[in-house]
Design a protein around this nucleic acid. Structure first.
Lengths: 231, 231
DNA sequence: CGACACGTTGATGTTAGTCAACTTTGGTGG
DNA sequence: CCACCAAAGTTGACTAACATCAACGTGTCG
């Protein structure tokens, strides 16, 4: 088992700022786990038995409707936190979109540890507040934007998020993005159908705003125009 | 100025569980403030200068789109917390829907106080996690449900929330609800237009599922049927 | 090389939005 | 107390946007 000492995301994850002693105790209650693309870690409605830190890979948080549609309510990247501490039920499924490597804790163990380490709870609070802001901004997109606006906003959001990769302090948005999503998943994030997403991307491409050299790669040619179309 | 000692929401707000001494220090940095229905407390994009506890009244959190539409991203009731601690910007406006009474803190003062009182940060974390779950569930509604499903889900949600009034331990949902919203605000919560909301309510009424004796009151006649239509 | 999943494109249908007229409600002042 | 008015809500006719259904590429992996 790898220890926190060598953890690649340790400086950005909630464990940042813990003392060597504390890191050691945390290390004792956590275990590493690999999870293959497409595999679920937590199912909607499950008892919330575990929480985790993402070390590598991308995962989605999603909920299904009674009639079989799906909505992705969150996407999780390396150093992000997964799960519902201090709660009984998980409200959504967690599924790996790529092969992923996690640092997993039993929720009970983690809860106790967190309660004894205010610094960690503080980090978790900041993260949760950020996620809440993000979720609320996404509610505006889902409630009020047109299909074209949603796709444009999505591409811009991705260029920011994927442009901040792992350990680098690189905060600049990237013009070239390699999406960890297929079309169906983009549709599930944006509350659209796969066909509508496809058509909007085709349109932006035809208008010379973006280029889409392969299924999952996007190049932003005219960021200003894309921003203008993002509502 | 009223002190925390007599605060009606003190047992349910984040201040619950603080020692008399702590409550006293908190009281010293907070001040009470009344705010009239329709008045804004915080504007979208503002520097996050203050946070508050709701003592009485209902407020909305909302964001506008470039083209003038509005999406309500949260509704806040007595004992709920308002504002963005540990952050520079407020991502959405806060506006009173009814006359409201708040306990307001400067964000800086509150941040410092919170960092020194892990118990309070823990309460805030739990609340924020709950709000995040709620926001994510709402994303499913906005992304995937039909107009009829949204209105039905909204009415059920309201019957639960308003059925848990102030100090009473009353957890049962109420069949009679007095909405703190007009039709436009319901539309802004559900990502619909006022006409669509009106038509759906008329339909439920015609189908004998609900009764709407006055503009802002709803009586749920057939909860099972309403649930069935909520997706 | 072929099969299958993934993606694109086109034709058509449905839902909710838009525009406009009309009705109800609740508050105000005569 | 009632009449009137503005604001809020309702209803109908029409339209636009997106979903649905269906056929047709394309790239990836055995």
């Amino acid at each position: 088992m790898r220890s926190c000492d060598v953890c690649v995301v340790r400086n950005r994850a909630i464990c940042a700022g813990l003392s060597p002693d504390e890191l050691d105790s945390l290390n004792r209650i956590g275990r590493h786990r690999n999870i293959a693309a497409g595999q679920a870690l937590i199912w909607e409605g499950d008892d919330a038995l575990l929480v985790a830190n993402v070390i590598e890979g991308v995962l989605k948080l999603s909920t299904g409707t009674r009639d079989g549609k799906e909505q992705i309510v969150g996407v999780v990247y390396p150093s992000d936190f997964i799960g519902r501490p201090f709660g009984q039920r998980s409200q959504h499924s967690v599924t790996a979109l790529t092969d992923a490597h996690l640092c997993v804790f039993s929720r009970n163990d983690f809860d106790s540890f967190a309660r004894e380490h205010p610094e960690l709870e503080h980090k978790l609070l900041q993260r949760t507040l950020d996620e809440l802001d993000r979720a609320r901004n996404w509610m505006v997109l889902l409630g009020r934007l047109s299909a074209a606006e949603r796709v444009a906003a999505f591409l811009l959001d991705m260029s920011e998020r994927l442009g901040n990769p792992a350990c680098e302090g690189n905060a600049a948005p990237h013009e070239s993005i390699e999406l960890p999503f297929g079309r169906q998943q983009i549709a599930d994030i944006l509350g659209l159908t796969i066909e509508t997403v496809s058509r909007q991307i085709a349109r932006f491409k035809a208008d010379g705003i973006i280029d889409a050299p392969s299924r999952r790669s996007i190049h932003i040619v005219d960021r200003a125009a894309l921003t203008a179309r993002a509502g």
